[in-house]
Nucleic acid binder design. Structure first.
Length: 549
RNA sequence: GGCGGCGUAGCUCAGUCGGUGAGAGCGCUCGACUCAUAAUCGAGAGGUCGGCAGUUCGAGUCUGCCCGCCGCUACCA
């Protein structure tokens, strides 16, 4: 019974390098989840892309004196490189700069406008009379009214951290020209979110199995009231307003927060078109049995658990999110990783120094599913050496080495299985089922831990049966034990596959069980020639993550 | 300020609807083993579950207050 599963992953700004927080928050969990569902035979569509619009990109472009397009052209390929290097298996990772995305955005805009849930409105905005431009809040700077910091931004003071409104600033000035900005009225299109409050609330309340912080946050947001939100800005970089609605004056664009979430739908359509099956996206968006999972960081909860559902409700005939398993943050020595603050090195920096599965393991074992989780380089190294290499890598290596050397490089012919043999196999099979259930529930850290516990159980089995002694006293029994151990690790390899997609298939190669293409313990053929035996992982040195190492 | 989350062994974290003596991994101590990447296995030490008060036959788990940390606060997404 195959199911269609949409794996929708947060769209990173193409304005800088991504760090391990991004990997842990959204991309790795999404990938583990997607790989699992592919293995069990579900039809997975995993999409995302670079967000090519938004303030961070224009800020960066202005700083460097280049066009926003150049910024996107620089960082989008870098981001694609990350996915390649750590095995994040997108079906499509596009950008928001495509013609397709524009059309889909317009579709949704028009549907809401026809229903009267997108309406015209006016707001006051700072305007730079010299540059002749409206200014986003962060383009206004001035003295913080709270702490006196002279270069506070319009949205926040970097010195005391307080949230500000640009009108709060003393001596406001434009960051573009230094001129004193003036308030000027400007027309915009507004999304009447409040019109969907009741429907979204009822929908949220019907959801079970969602993470507590996600549901509470979303409900709390509705409780506070959902005001109309301007979905256009006075900008020249962004998705244009549909021509028939572009009547508010010059220099208006649809703003990112409205348009970026639409990327999930437009990416699905783009993927379908690229496959030569332009209607195929409907299998994930309009089939009522399809499921959709949105992997985002907790800062994105409002957009995915409230605003995007409201947008879809207004659009109609498209599936709402099945779950938004938002993760909390990874902190580095207590501080939030942040592109703008420069805390946390890039994914690329780590992937150059660590094997992809080792990095994936370290991150997967600390996924911040319940709480913010602190991570240090020492912790990464420790997880790899003390857990991945010692427990799992060594288990595979010890079993295959002793088997290969003593049974002519073949899978041994077992006698009848004793109770202990059947028990260890049952432990592995039970763990395999449990890991699958945990991944389905997006309890990915728990799934990995369950697999590791089963690996420990196999180590215990070996220490109690002592096949290295049996080889001298009872060779037939040794064959049975080693056959059992081989069967156990072949089953465990399946459980590890979503987490460790680079090394897990090598176990099937070494045991000759063929490509694992389902979520069950592969059949092991006695007498079958083994592949070349080599350790799955290297132990790494303590200083591999030192700056100058 | 408002909202959300969190504060459990040295470290990173689990603890479902309140209920047998509070858990895991790593680290540490002692022991076993030697097939294996000085890997593995066993035993043990180690916590007044942030604080105070309350509800209850019974609270890490519920309520109130306090202390501390993190995030968001909608023109960052």
């Amino acid at each position: 019974m195959s199911q269609n599963i949409l794996v929708a992953v947060a769209w990173p700004y193409a304005s800088g390098s991504l760090h391990l927080g991004h990997l842990a928050g959204a991309y790795l969990p999404a990938d583990i989840f997607a790989r699992y569902h592919r293995l069990v035979g579900n039809k997975v569509l995993m999409v995302s892309g670079s967000d090519g619009h938004g303030t961070p990109i224009t800020v960066r472009a202005d700083q460097e004196g280049v066009s926003p397009q150049e910024i996107v052209d620089r960082y989008h390929p870098e981001i694609l490189g990350y996915w390649d290097s750590v095995g994040i298996s997108f079906d499509l990772f596009t950008t928001t700069l495509t013609e397709n995305h524009r059309q889909v955005t317009w579709d949704i805009f028009r549907a809401h406008r026809a229903k009267g849930t997108i309406v015209e409105g006016e707001s006051l905005q700072f305007y730079d009379p010299e540059a002749e431009r409206f200014l986003p809040d962060r383009y206004v700077e001035g003295t913080c009214p709270h702490c006196g910091y002279p270069t506070a931004r319009g949205d926040q003071c970097d010195n005391c951290g307080r949230t500000l409104d640009p009108t709060d600033l003393l001596n406001p000035r434009s960051r573009l020209s230094g001129a004193t900005p003036v308030q000027r009225s400007t027309k915009h299109w507004f999304l009447r979110l409040g019109a969907f409050a009741g429907e979204v609330k009822a929908w949220l309340e019907s959801k079970t199995g969602w993470r507590r912080h996600v549901k509470n946050w979303a409900l709390g947001m509705i409780e506070e009231g959902l005001p109309d939100r301007a979905i256009t800005r006075d900008l020249t970089w962004g998705v244009p307003i549909p021509p028939e609605a572009d009547t508010l004056g010059e220099g208006k664009r649809i703003y990112v927060w409205f348009e970026a979430v639409i990327g999930y739908l437009s990416a699905a359509k783009e993927w379908a078109a690229l496959q030569g099956t332009p209607e195929a996206w409907r299998d994930w968006w309009q089939n009522p049995d399809a499921k959709s999972y949105y992997f985002v960081g907790k800062d994105n909860i409002p957009f995915h658990a409230v605003i995007w559902p409201a947008m879809l409700m207004g659009y109609g005939e498209h599936n709402l999110p099945s779950d938004v398993p938002a993760n909390q943050y990874v902190t580095f020595k207590g501080s939030k990783a942040s592109k703008s603050l420069g805390v946390g090195r890039s994914i690329g920096w780590y992937s150059e120094r660590l094997e992809p599965d080792a990095l994936r393991f370290a991150i997967a074992s600390i996924l911040p599913e319940q709480n913010d989780t602190d991570l240090t380089d020492d912790e990464i190294i420790r997880r790899i050496n003390e857990e991945l290499v010692a427990t799992w890598g060594n288990l595979v290596n010890r079993v295959l080495t002793i088997t290969s050397r003593n049974f002519d490089h073949q899978v041994p012919e077992p006698g009848s299985l004793d109770k202990v043999d059947e028990e260890v196999i049952a432990t592995v099979d039970t763990a395999l089922t449990a890991v699958g259930e945990l991944i389905s529930e997006v309890e990915l850290r728990g799934g990995l831990r369950t697999a590791m516990e089963a690996a420990s159980a196999v180590n215990v089995y070996l220490n109690s049966t002592e096949p290295w002694k049996l080889l001298k006293s009872d060779r037939d029994r040794a064959a049975t034990v080693l056959y059992t151990a081989c069967a156990a690790i072949s089953g465990l390899a399946v459980a590890f596959t979503p987490y460790l997609p680079f090394t897990s298939p090598r176990i099937a190669e070494m045991l000759g069980t063929g490509p694992g293409d389902e979520w069950s313990r592969p059949k092991l053929t006695p007498g079958r020639e083994l592949g070349e035996i080599a350790p799955l992982f290297e132990k790494i040195s303590d200083d591999i993550l030192n700056e100058d190492a």
